[in-house]
């Protein structure tokens, strides 16, 4: 078992087979620099619980293909990303930090699905990005492909 510690000082025990899906922790263990408790200063306990839930479910991924549990895993993934926007954002940050490729892919796809039909304004707000383009530059981009800024699917709400 490996112990992980969140930035709000909560400890979680995870099976090594599950935790090595994180490239970062796998490298730490292989290089012998994993301490008895691995501190994760960028991840809060709420997010870490979600990540561990994912790691535990995906621990037997290789076996799933043999036993026909792929559908079960697919259903789990669909349910898993069914969370609030801010929560998803935090899981993405954690997956990126821990270098868990499959989790990153799953969450980025979900983020893209939620953002793809948003207006430019809504995307900026959801990702807290400050616009640094001048009005002229912006107009030029719009003029290049005005149709990309039109359509019934474009959604200006932030959620």
């Amino acid at each position: 078992m490996v112990k992980l510690k969140s930035n709000d000082d909560k400890e979680f025990e995870v099976e090594e087979a599950a935790v090595i899906q994180s490239e970062m922790i796998k490298n730490m263990i292989e290089d012998g620099c994993a301490t008895s408790v691995i501190p994760l200063p960028n991840i809060d306990s709420k997010t870490l619980i979600k990540v561990i839930e994912y790691l535990n479910k995906h621990i037997n991924m290789g076996k799933a293909a043999e036993t026909g549990e792929e559908d079960d895993l697919k259903e789990f993934d669909e349910q898993f990303v069914n969370m609030g926007w801010e929560e998803l954002f935090d899981v993405i940050m954690a997956a990126n930090y821990l270098n868990i490729h499959e989790l990153m892919e799953l969450c980025c796809q979900s983020a893209a699905d939620r953002l793809k039909n948003k207006s430019v304004r809504a995307v900026r707000e959801m990702l807290k990005i400050t616009n640094d383009l001048t009005e002229e530059e912006e107009q030029e981009i719009i003029n290049d492909a005005p149709w990309a800024f039109e359509g019934p699917e474009i959604d200006d709400t932030v959620n």
Partner: peptide, 18 residues
């Protein structure tokens, strides 16, 4: 990572983000 998952229409629009 997220941008790679967007359809082209969204990419053309989101050039305006920053």
């Amino acid at each position: 990572e997220i941008l790679l998952n967007f359809p082209v229409k969204s990419l053309l629009r989101f050039k305006c983000v920053c």
